[in-house]
Design a protein around this nucleic acid. Structure first.
Lengths: 212, 212, 212, 212
DNA sequence: GATGAATGAGGGTTCATTCAT
DNA sequence: CATGAATGAACCCTCATTCAT
């Protein structure tokens, strides 16, 4: 990415390697989003990518590593986007609205990726049958939201409430907005997001305080 | 097959047959809740029930029919329970709170059944790879909630808001409360439900109107 | 096996089960003996038996269990035969000769089984790469031979020598006689066995003692 | 072998080429000795040598040629060593003892090589499933031992016995001594060898003749 | 000379389903 | 009614080999 001026021949193969991995990850995302986690066999992913089945095993240690790579890529991308958007916000109220709207914007732009992410989150299991991600993987999101709530409560913007419950609820509201939109593609996603922002603004605001 | 005298196309089932079906459904629920949808093979379900694998095929047309029967039983039970509880409520505000609390009570009492229900909802697919249930299966719930919202808006209890978004959000909040509790069994489910009731009461209430 | 007088219908299925297991074991023995351990895939074994690959998985927990069953059957059979033959012997010298000759007779009658046994002994490995049987599996044979040697030394028939070395040597001599015969089927197995008996009789005998 | 300027169709190999082949052979020996023939994939051998998988295919026509090269190197080395040692011996009795002890000394010094040799001997198969080496590969050893026996019988040192049986037996005794030592590394290899020498000296000697 | 990338066959295993008994 | 036996497809993974670079 940066300063490719020097030495171009050395990265040639590594570039091919990365390109193949990216191609495979992209194919995995599309197959999972289209047909679901259970139907996303290596054979299907390879077929969809137009490559041989063995190529995947060559570039990834196993199916699990491929799935984890999908999660990493998608999860990292959404995190970076949302954090960048939130840098401009000032009040806790602003932060919440920005959070909802920026996640929504990202959803619209990366529908397929997020579908796949959800499928893997809820279906990938370790060898002993325990969920590999599951709800516990939301902990980072919950913690980030809780920090906003606590700041808002400290500043007097927000009323007193259980921050964990609010975080779980807001997170699920956003996730389900996405699921609903995927199921009903004609649904007005932006209007839904604005409604959600209003809804949670009312749910958290401190009514005893004068409005800004 | 036997005594089709009275009714349409549905075959009447003997007591023994019904008992077997119930036993198999119960076993399926337990296996799915414990190990997840993907690991719930007919072999596992049969083994857990202490019966032969072939029995399931005998009593059900296939695995899909068994899954549908699980959904029917659990879904019907929760609906009946919640509707019964809500009969006593008078105002729209009361109805919402009763809805949340009664669903929560049912969750606590039928944890295993609802886990299985969720697994099937999000994983069962038709032969062409499309979700068999998914969010579309929530339509009935959404419609019921919307009737409450509209009544509240008509009576002036509730402010104006998009009833579909509110229904989707409240439904997801309740579902996710359950998922969180399953993941963290020490979580205080009742406190969570009360917080949710407060949260949504504030989200919907008409602030321009004097409180009752 | 014993008192099949009562209840004949109950064992019918168990009989079929045993028959299938025996058929699969027999097929495995033939494929291993013919083509070697490495080439004895479940597919080959099934094909040779004229059955589907899945049948093997149905009747055996896995390939390892099948291999172990082969070893058990063959190893048990040879042990029983040799022990029965040796009951008649009186002196330690007689026991040694009887051991060699009876093992040889069993080899002639069960050539294929013993080839397969050897293949599995030296090739089957556990999941971590360690030999599953290997030379350690000869311990029982070594111990039995050592008891004969010690008895002969105590009675004065045999000279003093290291019993472990003698046991390892005699065991390997008999095993290799078999291997040689398998490679050169026209080789005179019985003459070889008699030569071996003479050879070891001279190797162990106490020369300071008057002959019987 | 070298300075093939003069001869036939064999291609002369550069120093670099020979060095690579030797490196690969050495790596193959170590992997086979450590993990067994079945687990010695080209990938493992290449990884252990720190080279790319393709290098092996470049320097060897295939896996079989590599295996044959391993056998050639190890087998040639042991033959040269033993023959050199036996040059000093005078009587047939001396020759036998020298044979056993020199082979043993070589085993101790080249444990890994001989383990690999044994693995290949008993496992390598041709395309049609027949053993590539097996017992037939011992023919040279058998013939050499037989010449000693016949000389001893002619000189009156040894009694009359079947020289082929004796050769097969002695060869197997030495091979199995090695195998036992590999399995039980604390086993006293030299004491075992001396016991073997005594054992076979008694087995072959002409008792009707006065001792030297 | 050497490499990494790719292939395609075959490995063992699991599974829903069918069927004779 | 119920069973155990059997099937055949699909699963993930490993491997020796080939080939363009």
């Amino acid at each position: 990415m940066r300063s490719e001026i020097e030495s171009s021949g050395q990265k040639a193969r590594s570039f091919i390697e990365e390109a193949r991995r990216a191609q495979i990850v992209a194919s995995a995302i599309e197959v999972i989003a289209e047909s679901g986690f259970a139907a996303a066999s290596l054979a299907q992913i390879a077929k969809h990518a137009g490559i041989s089945k063995g190529v995947i095993s060559y570039h990834f240690a196993g199916k699990d590593e491929l799935m984890e790579e999908v999660v990493n890529q998608v999860y990292t991308a959404i995190g970076e986007h949302v954090l960048a958007e939130m840098e401009g916000a000032e009040s806790a109220t602003d932060l919440l609205r920005t959070y909802i709207l920026s996640v929504t914007a990202h959803m619209r732009a990366h529908r397929t990726q997020l579908r796949a992410l959800g499928e893997i989150f809820y279906n990938l299991r370790t060898a002993d049958g325990q969920p590999h991600y599951g709800i516990k993987a939301n902990e980072e999101t919950y913690a980030a939201l809780e920090r906003i709530y606590l700041a808002g409560q400290a500043s007097g913007e927000f009323r007193q409430f259980d921050v964990r419950v609010m975080a779980v609820t807001m997170s699920s509201a956003v996730d389900n907005m996405f699921g609903y939109w995927v199921t009903y593609p004609d649904h007005d996603l932006d209007a839904h997001a604005r409604e959600l922002a209003d809804l949670f603004e009312r749910a958290v605001k401190n009514e005893d305080r004068a409005e800004d």
